[in-house]
Design a protein around this nucleic acid. Structure first.
Length: 860
RNA sequence: GGGCGCAUAGCUCAGUUGGUUAGAGCGCUGCCCUUACAAGGCAGAUGCCGGGGGUUCGAGUCCCUCUGCGCCCACCA
């Protein structure tokens, strides 16, 4: 890129793909366990997106954060590995392929297990993993040579290995229990795969006998009732406990039992008990050895009692109510009732509790370790407030149902012998002839729970595993803290002898729309990151997300924000363009005796480097972005570049020094921004410095020698003066470009050395022969006399000065009152008192100045 | 039912251990194509910091309370 070829606008499409391909080809993102043995490793494993997924804003946020962390560490010389991959996503993927089959009029059963699985693999090869290509558009600096998939041979081996180990340790067992069942997906679900939502329903009161009335929202389940429960201490029913009543419609006789679970305050204090179709009732039934009658099949179609047989549960509900009404069993009216209903998190179908035989992980010991690792500080959660949620979960975890009645997934490595034997075999073990494998597969989260080490080669002691485990930080949304994070903690600690899978868990929020609303298809407020990448560039998309990523907070995004980020990239582009047009460079040492302006910007730069470091270490991406945004735009572009025009025009040594410092400042700013916005910074940096790549360039160090308080004071004062005079010009209707003759009286002010810059910034010309000051502005210790070549708006200026005067007087009154307060003086810290004293002095000075100015205004 | 959090400018959000003049982005008003950038420059306006009470010399910040939201957990027939 040569100077003349730099267009005036940054066009992301011209550089992004080109640069990404170059980075990958050069192997910049590839980690090597043998390289840099003395520098620390820095590892992040990507939360594996579903193979069915495509990039949405949530990924874009998650990845922008991880890329920022990894790219910075890489620049700091760490051996950085960001490992990519995908999850096979059991139910989700199987559903996709089944839908595809349905269009051909087929079901998976038509194909059979083996052919179906072949079909899924085929789908994966052709249509799956679209998201990987989209990650490249975002600029993710992942190590593609280490891409993994949860169904890879290696990862499947890890699944088999750990299953067998858990099985042998007695931490996996099979049991018949009541579980959440999705009648559409036809599989068991774990507790967290069920989402509860309030739904309008009806509470139906049914008279089971003259003395017992029960209420239910699921009337059809009464067909499976095998008991009635009352509280043991409830006097209303004490005499009935142990007796039997006839169950309406069925003619069956069912016992009345006493159970602590029943709340005597609720309803009539009597509960119908359906052990086969309600978790509470299941427990009650177990305690009182009640019969369990399953009344529905796996599709939730009624299988018992003639008249209702073949009806779907939702059809059976009103049918049962109608039949009961006919028998005169319905008490009074049916009440509308809002209650919480569980839905399958995959397909939204209402979940049906169902008794079945499933595999479980006994979580108590594993969850204990997972909690302790955070409690004892070996793993930290960012932001710390979210640790409470983590504890609430791991400390109260139920055993985890891991079997799914699906075909796509890791088949449970348990075999059954011809004589009813049961055994688990590891992946390298020989299964005896004639034994058949369990037909269920494992919950998708089982294999993703191994992700931080299965991807590195576990159980083999690979070089990668040694070098890159434990990982440094896990970055993910707080929404899958339970689904995924807790599981990785449990498995990591278990498999890796107590070494947790990551040192830090950095949680971020959800991406929301510009009004803070959740993005959803039905609401129509979903923003596609790829659309933004097309229109504003990957950098602008990333910057927008990072800028909104306050620790732990949700991230609202809107097109305006993205435009602002795009504009920022363009600003950097033009600042660099200006610098290059003026010969800025990075060669050689910084000039020893640089100007006050140069000293000021370097001093500020030093502070900014420190602040950016601090914010990034704290996972405060919003503040890191904000700091750089304002420094680059407000200070470098609006002031430093403008101020540098004077020495650059002057030429000679002054220009030489400025060219070098200008190069240094931009070089450093581009380095600092590179982790967040890699493309535009790379393009500009290589052009400006002639360097190879920013990807592996050094991260800026804080240069204490750059600190120069005096220069900062002088330039702050200069800015104050310029702003004040500009304000006057603006108020007086003087056009920005209009030259105005002025005489400057500096007295002893250090700003005297900057007269030329001041005149340049303010478009002030030297007083000529006919000079006649029409306004006099004393500001920052300098008196600026302006010849406005006409009358000024005295009334406007007087009003303005009067307003300022009022404010200053109010300030004096307030501050002196405060300082006159004995309590305040006695109790407030010295610094606060000194600050107030300074404010008082300043207010007094303002009053004097404003009075002088008012007096100096021409009358009329 | 339990737990957590939020309420600050038109919108979305910052605001360290209480310190007196509460900030940002976008939006808004006026002027300007000033030779890096109009995706720009300069100047400017805008807040009973949800209501009430308390602690304190001092409260957006701490305590209590009310109101209105949001989220998570839960075996609410």
């Amino acid at each position: 890129m040569t100077v003349p070829s730099l267009p005036t606008q940054y066009v992301p499409a011209d550089v992004e793909t080109k640069l990404y391909e170059r980075w990958v080809a050069a192997g910049y993102f590839e980690a090597d366990p043998a390289r840099n043995p003395d520098s620390p490793a820095y590892t992040i494993v990507i939360p594996p997106p579903n193979v069915t997924g495509s990039l949405h804003m949530g990924h874009a946020l998650d990845h922008s954060i991880q890329d920022t962390l990894v790219r910075r560490r890489r620049m700091q010389g760490h051996e950085a590995l960001w490992l990519p991959g995908m999850d096979h996503a059991g139910i989700a993927t199987q559903n996709v392929v089944e839908r595809e089959l349905a269009r051909e009029g087929l079901s998976r059963h038509d194909l059979g297990r083996e052919a179906f699985l072949e079909r899924v693999w085929q789908w994966k090869g052709e249509s799956g993993g679209r998201i990987l290509g989209q990650m490249k558009r975002l600029g993710d600096s992942v190590d593609w040579s280490r891409e993994r998939f949860t169904m890879d041979a290696g990862l499947s081996h890890a699944v088999g290995t750990i299953f067998k180990r858990l099985y042998d340790d007695g931490l996996i067992y099979r049991a018949e229990r009541i579980i959440n069942w999705c009648p559409r997906c036809l599989t068991a679900l774990s507790d967290i795969e069920v989402e509860h939502a309030d739904r309008d329903g009806e509470l139906v009161s049914i008279r089971y006998s003259d003395e017992i009335v029960v209420a239910t929202t699921r009337a059809e389940t009464m067909l499976g009732d095998t008991g009635i429960a009352v509280h043991p201490d409830d006097p209303r029913y004490a005499h009935l406990v142990g007796t039997e009543v006839e169950l309406p419609l069925t003619g069956r006789r069912i016992p009345v039992v006493a159970d602590e679970h029943v709340d005597p305050e609720f309803g009539t204090g009597a509960v119908k008990v359906t052990p086969a179709h309600d978790p509470n009732d299941f427990e009650i039934g177990r305690r009182h050895t009640l019969e369990s009658i399953t009344i529905m099949d796996e599709r939730a179609v009624i299988t018992v009692h003639g008249p209702f047989q073949g009806l779907d549960r939702l059809e059976a509900r009103p049918a049962v109510v109608a039949a009961l009404r006919e028998e005169g069993r319905i008490v009074r009216e049916i009440r509308p009732y809002v209650h919480s209903v569980g839905h399958c998190s995959r397909c939204r179908t209402v979940v049906e509790p169902r008794v079945s035989l499933q595999w479980y992980v006994k979580v108590a010991p594993l969850a204990k370790a997972a909690g302790d690792a955070v409690r004892d500080g070996s793993v930290t959660i960012e932001p710390p407030e979210l640790a409470a949620r983590y504890f609430a979960w791991v400390d109260n975890m139920h055993d985890w149902c891991i079997s799914r009645q699906l075909w796509w997934g890791h088949r449970i490595p348990v075999w059954y012998g011809p004589d009813g034997e049961q055994a688990s075999f590891g992946p390298d073990e020989q299964v005896p002839a004639g034994w058949t494998q369990d037909s269920d597969v494992l919950d998708t989260w089982f294999s993703s729970g191994l992700w931080p080490f299965s991807t590195l080669g576990w159980p083999e002691e690979t070089a990668d595993l040694k070098r890159f485990y434990p990982t440094s930080v896990l970055v993910t949304g707080y929404d899958i803290l339970f689904f995924w994070v807790a599981r990785m903690m449990m498995f990591g600690l278990y498999a890796m002898d107590g070494v947790p899978p990551f040192k830090t868990i950095a949680l971020h929020g959800m991406v929301r729309d510009e009004h803070g609303k959740k993005m959803s298809k039905s609401f129509g407020n979903v923003v596609d990151p790829l659309d933004w990448i097309e229109r504003f560039g990957a950098d602008a998309t990333r910057f927008t997300l990072l800028r909104g990523a306050n620790p732990g907070g949700d991230v609202p995004v809107a097109e305006d924000w993205a435009q602002g980020s795009r504009n920022f990239c363009n600003k950097l582009w033009n600042a660099t363009r200006f610098a290059m047009m003026n010969g800025a460079h990075v060669n050689g040492d910084l000039p020893a005796a640089h100007s006050t302006v140069d000293a000021w910007i370097l001093s500020r730069l030093r502070t900014v480097i420190g602040e950016v470091d601090r914010h990034l270490e704290a996972y405060d991406f919003a503040k890191a972005c904000e700091t750089l945004y304002h420094f680059a735009w407000d200070e470098v572009c609006d002031w430093y570049l403008e101020l540098s025009k004077v020495p650059l025009a002057e030429g000679g040594a002054a220009a030489d020094a400025t060219r070098r410092v200008l190069g240094e400042v931009l070089d450093t700013v581009l380095r600092l921004l590179h982790p967040m916005i890699p493309f535009v910074t790379e393009e500009l940096w290589t052009a400006l410095t002639g360097g190879q790549t920013l990807v592996r360039a050094a991260w800026p160090a804080v240069e204490d020698s750059w600190t120069d308080d005096e220069a900062e004071t002088v330039i702050t004062s200069l800015r104050g003066l310029v702003t004040e005079v500009r304000r006057f010009r603006s108020d007086q209707g003087l056009k920005p470009g209009q030259r105005v003759a002025a005489a400057l009286e500096f007295g002893t002010s250090p700003l005297a050395r900057h007269e030329e810059s001041i005149r340049s910034l303010l478009r002030l010309t030297a007083p000529d022969e006919g000079f006649s000051a029409t306004a006099s502005l004393p500001v920052e210790g300098v008196v600026v006399r302006l010849d406005t070549a006409g009358t000024i708006d005295v009334a406007a200026e007087r009003a303005r000065l009067a307003k300022d005067l009022t404010l200053a007087r109010k300030e004096v009154a307030q501050t002196s009152g405060k300082l006159g307060n004995a309590d305040f003086v006695a109790k407030a810290p010295e610094a606060v008192i000194a600050k107030n004293q300074a404010r008082l002095d300043a207010a007094h000075a303002d009053i004097a100045r404003l009075e002088t100015q008012l007096a100096a205004l021409p009358s009329g």
